[in-house]
Write a protein that binds this DNA or RNA. Structure first.
Lengths: 254, 254
DNA sequence: ATTGACAAATTGGTTGGACCAATGGATGAT
DNA sequence: ATCATCCATTGGTCCAACCAATTTGTCAAT
């Protein structure tokens, strides 16, 4: 048999904090450390792992950087929901020191657009009835004028997450949550607030979609969702234009 | 104007290593620290940031966890290509202590399938002629029987990356590189090696695709790529079956 | 009983220093 | 020119101490 290329692996020097971080990470992903639970104090963990507190802290920093845990002084380290974990580098790429990088934003929107469409296809195919009820609940929440405006927008974003759950695919679920968190990030929310959109805009779209699904017309349902995605994109692009005009006015002023 | 929900932000305590990590991260994403360049020694950086070496190291650990830098003892910290950065948690989710979690793998493949198709649509639409040449070069490499078997498989994976470059969308480029790195990860490569596939299987598909693009038949090109994606999926799924049968035989043995 | 102020215990944050270990380049013998 | 050796550089780990924020418990005032 031919020699496999990966037969000889680079002599990975196993660093202490790597071993610790890996064990903790797996414990979290396994569910042994459920979301919301607290890690033991650093000093205790260090003792238990038989490593110095410094090394243990380096491990915690890695996990914190990945968004798996949140650490607060005086309190401890709390396990975060794994699906919510880290936006990776998309966040830093889009939000260069607080301002929106409109060029990257366009790229992101383009990808999200594709993602949502493909995801929706699966969602429509695999959904369970009770999940349709959940979508309707969110729809009512969006339309409920007694609620806080931001809450209603948040419900709109949650539609994406609910759709991902309908796919019963963990990776889609992760991506959808990352997307929702991205859309919910302060710079984007603040920018959208200035556009003065109405959360209700999407309600008729959602209605058409749910009706189509119940009528077993997947193609029609997908077309409605396409409208929803395009609505999102349109909003994002007007954000871009807004950011660009701001940049221009600043450039002129200087 | 209505009160915005994010008016009051949680009093974020600014930790030293956060400030350092952020500055370094932005410097990397900005290109001020280009890929391949070396960071100054920890002791020098600590001096320059006016922080203790321990705190500086915590910052480096975060960046390393995100896959932005690689640190080697005796050598220093090297900036990695930003597009190659971190597989996030997909890797750890699929490769539970070295073995392949076939359930998650199926989810991942499903998503990748959708991603590649949507990405290819853009790639076909926006490609430049010289990029088609590059695809052909990779095709020749796959077919070149004088090369190392693994090199030829690697060329096949690089096709995905080249496609992403054709989209001229940075986010697709990131996703494609993450995908390639995922496919190139040791557990998957080792498993695939046992299937004894031939790298050349995809050559006719690529040929049909490039010919269709040159003939300005985007739909035909997309259909060929669909075949490529399905080839990848099929291979992945046989990996799953292989892993499952292994698990069964182990269960029986125990 | 509720509230508020205060103190103490808990817990993470930071620092300085010391020493170990790997790398890479300089040095020198062949 | 080649190779082995040595050594300066650089990251890895540990230790001990102290700072700072949070939480909790206590007690007095209302």
């Amino acid at each position: 048999m031919a020699e496999r290329g990966d037969r000889f692996r680079p002599p990975v020097r196993r660093r202490v904090h790597e071993g610790v971080a890996e064990q903790l990470r797996d414990a979290i992903l396994d569910g042994a450390l459920p979301a919301g639970s607290k890690l033991p104090p650093e000093r205790v963990l260090a003792e238990r792992f038989q490593v110095n507190r410094t090394s243990l802290r380096e491990a915690l920093k890695v996990l914190e950087g990945l968004g798996l845990i949140a650490v607060r002084q005086g309190d401890g380290a709390t396990v975060l929901p794994a699906e919510e974990a880290s936006l990776d580098l998309l966040g830093p790429m889009i939000f260069r020191d607080g301002r929106i990088d409109s060029a990257v934003l366009v790229d992101v929107i383009e990808v999200i657009q594709s993602l949502l469409l493909e995801m929706s296809r699966l969602a429509i195919e695999r959904h369970r009835p009770e999940q349709l009820v959940e979508i309707r609940r969110l729809r009512d929440q969006i339309a409920d004028s007694s609620l806080d405006r931001e809450q209603r927008f948040a419900a709109g974003r949650d539609v994406i997450v609910e759709l991902s759950d309908m796919t019963r695919n963990r990776v889609w679920q992760m991506l959808a949550r990352k997307t929702r968190n991205l859309l919910a990030s302060p710079p984007l929310v603040a920018a959208r607030a200035q556009l003065d959109r109405d959360p209700c805009d999407v309600v008729p779209i959602i209605d058409r979609c749910t009706e189509s699904i119940e009528a077993c017309r997947p193609q029609a349902a997908l077309d409605s969702l396409r409208a929803y995605v395009e609505y999102l994109s349109e909003m994002a692009l007007s954000l871009r234009d807004h950011a660009d005009s701001e940049r221009v006015s600043k450039a002129v002023a200087s």
